[in-house]
């Protein structure tokens, strides 16, 4: 049984303007999946659907085989959730926020809580409203992971944190929990974080899943081909080549992303345009993201 399963999810906020149009993918136990997409692609919507905070207009989502809207308490107790806009009750002290969560989650691990309090050096008697943004985020993260959730949903959790704090958090929460079998779905605009931590990437674009692949296979199975400008080298012509999934017109050349090995991609370009001087370049995840979503838009 999948830990989390999205099946043909549709969601619109305004009639006729769908944010998600038939998104389907699932996560197995222990997977760490990076959720990528441009701003407004629907990553937060998908996370909120998983938490049962909003419901899809079409499609089914299940966590641990349960519907998050049907069994919200059972689901939320097994999930850790941190979002970028998550606001802790500002009138409470850090100590009280932790006590609040401890009371709500039966599986709370006090040893882990103490460990994280020490690591983050949290001022336990300070009120949430007097904390810095980074400290408030650390409190939210502590509360999200200290009950050792079976599924951790992180929606831009490290936004606003400095690089050291970000790495500290990612290593403590994601790696530590994943070692104990927690499944993790996290969205981030930091591609280096995704590359370092995720075993798999799901990229959402224009309401659907554009890429769903292991990160290693993604690197091996995708290639960036730079085709010099020429009258016959057009965007449509490139997109018509088998395996070409994105094209961007850049000043130096047309950048085309292919879902195949570099050699195959070059062969296909040569077959289409003849000898054009096309060359292959290794593609980093960030570059692939830019080429794909930039090229599609």
């Amino acid at each position: 049984m999948s830990i989390i399963e999205f099946n043909n999810i549709h969601r619109a906020y305004k009639r006729g303007i769908d944010v998600l149009r038939g998104v389907s993918f699932s996560l197995e136990k222990g997977e760490v999946v990076g959720l990528l997409g441009k701003n407004g692609a629907g990553k937060t919507t998908l996370m909120r659907i998983a938490m049962g905070m909003i419901e899809p207009q079409k499609g089914i989502v299940s966590l641990f085989g349960l519907g998050p809207r049907d069994e919200p308490i059972q689901v939320k107790r097994r999930v850790g959730y941190v979002s970028e806009d998550q606001i802790l009750p500002e009138f409470l002290r850090v100590r009280e926020v932790i006590q609040l969560h401890r009371g709500l989650f039966p599986t709370w691990d006090e040893a882990l809580e103490h460990d994280l309090c020490k690591r983050f050096s949290l001022p336990l008697n300070a009120k949430i409203r007097s904390l810095s943004k980074g400290q408030a985020r650390q409190v939210a993260l502590l509360c999200a992971v200290s009950h050792r959730p079976e599924l951790l949903l992180l929606d831009e959790p490290a936004g606003g944190l400095d690089p050291a704090a970000r790495r500290e958090f990612l290593e403590t929460s994601i790696q530590m929990l994943n070692e104990t079998g927690t499944t993790i779905l996290f969205s981030s605009h930091y591609m280096s974080d995704v590359e370092r931590l995720a075993g798999r990437v799901v990229m959402i674009h224009e309401g659907g899943v554009l890429i769903d692949s292991d990160i290693d296979l993604l690197r091996e199975g995708h290639s960036l081909v730079l085709v010099p400008h020429a009258p016959k080298v057009t965007r449509d012509a490139l997109l018509s080549i088998e395996g070409c999934i994105g094209v961007r017109d850049r000043s130096d050349a047309m950048h085309a992303v292919f879902r195949c090995q570099p050699r195959d991609a070059l062969d296909r370009v040569a077959r289409q345009f003849g000898s054009t001087g096309a060359r292959h370049r290794d593609v980093a995840l960030e570059e692939m993201f830019i080429e794909l979503v930039g090229g599609q838009s």
Binding site: R95, Q99, R102, E110, H114, C117, K118, S121, P123
Partner: peptide, 14 residues
């Protein structure tokens, strides 16, 4: 408030 400590009292009312 600025004191950092690793323990939150767990004996209080939940």
């Amino acid at each position: 408030s600025s004191r950092a400590t690793g323990a939150v009292d767990s004996t209080g009312s939940r």
